[in-house]
Every structure is written in structure tokens, then in C-alpha cells.
Design a binder for these strands. Sequence first.
DNA 1: GCCGCGCTTGACCGCTCGGTCAATGTTCAC
DNA 2: GTGAACATTGACCGAGCGGTCAAGCGCGGC
Lengths: 178, 178
Amino acid sequence: MECGARLFAERGYHPTSVADIVATLGVGKGVFYWYFASKEELLTELLKASNHDLRKRQQHALGDEADPVRRIELGIRASLSWFAEHREYFAIIQFAATDETFAPVLARNREISIADTIRHLKDGIVDGRIADRDPTLLAHAIHGVVAELTSHALVDSSLSVDEVADLCVAFCLEGLCG
Amino acid sequence: MECGARLFAERGYHPTSVADIVATLGVGKGVFYWYFASKEELLTELLKASNHDLRKRQQHALGDEADPVRRIELGIRASLSWFAEHREYFAIIQFAATDETFAPVLARNREISIADTIRHLKDGIVDGRIADRDPTLLAHAIHGVVAELTSHALVDSSLSVDEVADLCVAFCLEGLCG
DNA sequence: GCCGCGCTTGACCGCTCGGTCAATGTTCAC
DNA sequence: GTGAACATTGACCGAGCGGTCAAGCGCGGC
């Protein structure tokens, strides 16, 4: 059912009407409002489900790895591979971040993810493996790299996810100067 | 005139009607369509103008600096300080990237900016100052860090732009492990 | 056979939107 | 003073939207 919402990704939320969605599915409009209270709820549901799935993937990827630096690396790789398999969601999430209706949900999701990263960073800093800089800003920096490289990897599919992930990790750990 | 378009930033493009804009300005609807062919053109014009202004700022900041690494640093700082002074535009640009109507314009703008960064990166690589990795991906990584830290700095105003810029540069050059 | 009900339909409603335009005010040059 | 060009108004339009709902369908229980 929610598969019919790849339309949001292709054409954007506002330009996609409920009529478009049900027409693509070949069903009447009523069936949509039988399962969702509103068009808004569909997007919210999409956001919740995708976030839940992504986090599950990350937690599974981290396993019981103890090294904080390695945990960060695994988190990055998990994010990239998840988005590679769910390309539609990238555009959806990016739009949702710009709409005041959905921004709060998304902000909460991201805060949780950032908080996780911050924890690993702090661990790494007390271990002396990570330079002692504001962990919050570092966490955002990492998320920025991941988001942008995800976006780029989705467009330029000539690169494999692993290649991108390798560079992403290298950049985050060693910077430009290596 | 275009100042009335901070509404786009506050409420988003689609939720802001032309009627809202002219009401805020206290003028009739006709005056809007005297200056702009359509609502769409207003956003396009906004994007063009902001991109032009940002690039001007960057070129001015770079001056005649020869060191490629330093040029990258100055570019980063220029971006951050420009967005700090034009907060409204961040949300607008972020939205425009998700809308298929405006994405092409924005993509071109960004490609130019990325191309600049790539040039500096290549210079740095032949100098041996920058690790020999795919310059395109590195450029996107840098832009990702800048975008995310910009976004975060706009929300959390407790940090000065310079503090954020310092960390941003440090992260890009040295990574987490410094 | 027939009822009840979960599910589905699509015509329809009210509303808001982007965009138009005849009418009118304002400002010059001459 | 007068008229042409400029600038502005806001009522109005058709389109398309999100959302509703009376009517119908199919199917299992009795």
C-alpha cells in the first residue's frame, strides 16, 4: 500500500495529489481514506516507518562492537547502505525537513541519531582516539558528510556504495590531509 | 520587494500563497504580477540572486590566496558567514532542492561550486598536501559538512559562526582523529 | 435466500490557489 | 491642461485540491 508513495519521492509531496496516488494504484479514493486519516498522515507514517527501519539496520550493524571509532564507522556504512536500498526515501525526508508540519517529527528522529553519535564520540575522546572537540558539532559534521555523499551516490550510480562508504569513513576519520 | 519572500522561508513555498505575500506587503495582487510573471519566477529569481551573492562573497574571500588548502578553508568560512547573514535562504534552498521544478537550477549552481572545490582539491593533491582520493567525492563531503553545520548553527545560536567555522575547517582538514 | 458488514467506489463538496483584467490613480513631457 | 505611459487595484475566474459520503459489492454465517 505505502509503496504507492514513491510518488512523493518522484514528484514531491505537494505536487502529488491523493487522486494521483489512488489512480496509480488503480483504486478508488475512498480506500485511501479507509487506511489513512489524511494525506498528511501517510507522510508521517512513511517517516516513522523508514526511521524505524533505518535504526534497526544500524543497531544490527553495530552488533556488540566495543571500539567507539569502529562503531561510528559501522553506523556510517549502515546508513549509506540503507539509503542505497531505499533511494525513494531520501527525497521524501529532505522535503519533510523543510515543511513545518513534518519538521518536528524529523527533528526528533535526527536528534536521537545525533545523540547516539555523540555518545560514541565522547567515548572515543576519553580514550584519546578522537580529538577533543565539541562532540555535538562533530556529530553534525559526520551526519552532513553522510547525507551529502548519500545524495551524490544516488545520482551518480557509477560508484558502488562500498566505494563511497570507504571514502566517507576515511574522510571522517582522517580529513582531507589524511 | 523580494524581502516579502522571507515568508517562503518561514512557512515553505507551497503553503505560502501569493495572496499572503501581497497582504504582508500591503499591496494589491496586480503589483506582484507586474514584477514577476509567476510565483515560480519569484523563487527562481530568489535562487539566482542568492547564488550570485554567495559566489561574490566567496570570490572576494579567496582574494589572491595561492595555497589550495587555504583556499578551501576560506571558501568554507565564506559560506558559513554568508548563510549566517542570510538565514532565510537556507530553508528556501533546501526546499528548492526537493522540488523537480527548481532542482535543475539548484543542481547547476551546486555543480559550479563543487567544480571550484574540486579544482582546489586537485591542486592540493598534486602538491601532496591533500590525500590522493576521489576529488569529486571529497568535494561533496566538504559541502555536506558545511551544509549540515550551517543548518545546526542557525538553530543553535549559542555558538558563534567563527567557533563553528573553526571546527568545520578542523574536521575537514584533519578528520575526527586530528 | 438473505442479512450484516468490512471494504470499495467515484461523484461530489467547499475551498483555496495561481493567475487575469477592466478600471483607476499617478506622473510626467509638452 | 491634457494625454500617454506607467503603476496599481482587487473582484473575479477556472482549476485542482483534500476530504466526504450515499450507494454498492462480495462474502461468510445462519
